[in-house]
């Protein structure tokens, strides 16, 4: 059996794959359903008291300038809006996904992912209208797509740690003290290294998991194609946003520690989004602020 087939099989069977709490899935489905309302959303979140406490704490923090205090989830829905609240629930929930993995520094990993989430969302306003960023399948999911884009890395490190180490080394994984990755000039981008050693990339694995979780198609595609957005079909725009946001965060030094930062992004993807090079300084500023926000969010969520 090829390693790829082996991986695909274990994705379907193995139970210790990190999974989002049920409340997140239900929330996602509720938001997508046509006849949802604030009360229904609030009810779902309130079923998880720990989550509720954290969400309220963060909603009242410097991250959201809400003015007078938000005292219950119901108010949080109306004051932050459904989509923003959902983003917050996701971020708080993924931070509970901290399995003890052999090669991944989860703090660094999630700081990167949360930054990509914020940056993906911030970038929406720089994109041209023709790219379709205004559609809810894009704007509503930019944060979540950024947040979950590298999920496959956690899964691979969990199910096949030994073989995964080979791919990570080829990608020039930096554990802080090594210089430009062990493989030096020979290093491959992580996805290419994974493809070579495992026959499957973390992007594809992440997509498979999200599909199993019943997540919307646009999210699945964005994650599957975050390193190769031109291959995305129907949901290319979301994939492009994650691709660029990921690059920008790496450029700002907010990487996930798994590989040498990429030396560029896909130009075709930039063009697809209708971005302009005049906005580069603004995007850089935005990403730096978003990196600080993620730091704050992580502190608040872990306290």
């Amino acid at each position: 059996m090829s390693l790829r087939t082996e991986i695909l099989t274990s994705l379907e069977t193995v139970i210790q794959i990190p999974t989002l709490p049920e409340v997140v899935m239900r929330l996602q489905h509720e938001i997508e359903s046509d006849d949802t309302d604030a009360a229904a959303i609030a009810r779902i979140i309130s079923e998880d008291p720990t989550l509720t406490l954290k969400v309220l704490k963060i909603a009242n923090s410097v991250l959201y300038h809400v003015g007078s205090e938000i005292v219950d989830v119901r108010q949080a829905v109306t004051r932050l809006g459904m989509s923003e609240l959902r983003n917050l629930v996701y971020a708080v929930s993924v931070l509970r996904l901290m399995p003890d993995l052999p090669h991944i520094d989860y703090k660094r990993f999630w700081r990167h992912s949360i930054s990509v989430a914020y940056t993906a969302k911030s970038m929406l306003r720089c994109c041209g209208a023709e790219s379709g960023v205004g559609e809810s399948s894009v704007s509503g999911l930019a944060f979540v797509a950024g947040l979950l884009h590298d999920l496959g890395i956690l899964v691979l490190d969990q199910i096949i740690p030994e073989q995964y180490a080979l791919a990570l080394n080829m990608a020039g994984r930096n554990d802080g003290d090594s210089n430009a990755g062990e493989a030096g000039g020979e290093s491959l981008p992580l996805c290419a290294a994974e493809q070579k050693f495992l026959g499957i990339s973390h992007a594809e694995v992440g997509g498979i998991i999200l599909r199993q979780w019943g997540m919307p198609n646009s999210l699945v595609e964005a994650v599957t194609f975050h390193n190769d957005p031109l291959s995305a079909d129907e949901h290319r725009t979301l994939a492009c946003i994650v691709h660029i946001a990921n690059f920008v965060c790496n450029n700002r030094g907010i990487d996930n520690g798994t590989s040498v930062p990429p030396e560029g992004f896909s130009d075709a993807c930039w063009d697809w989004l209708g971005l302009s090079v005049e906005e580069i300084p603004a995007i850089i500023d935005m990403a730096d602020q978003d990196a600080e926000k993620s730091q704050t969010l992580m502190l608040l969520a872990s306290a």
Partner: peptide, 19 residues
């Protein structure tokens, strides 16, 4: 290339690029 201009504007280089 917008990607090249982004890298240039950010003026941040990896050890490999600098070497």
């Amino acid at each position: 290339s917008p990607s090249a201009i982004f890298m240039a504007t950010s003026a941040r280089y990896s050890q490999l690029a600098l070497s």
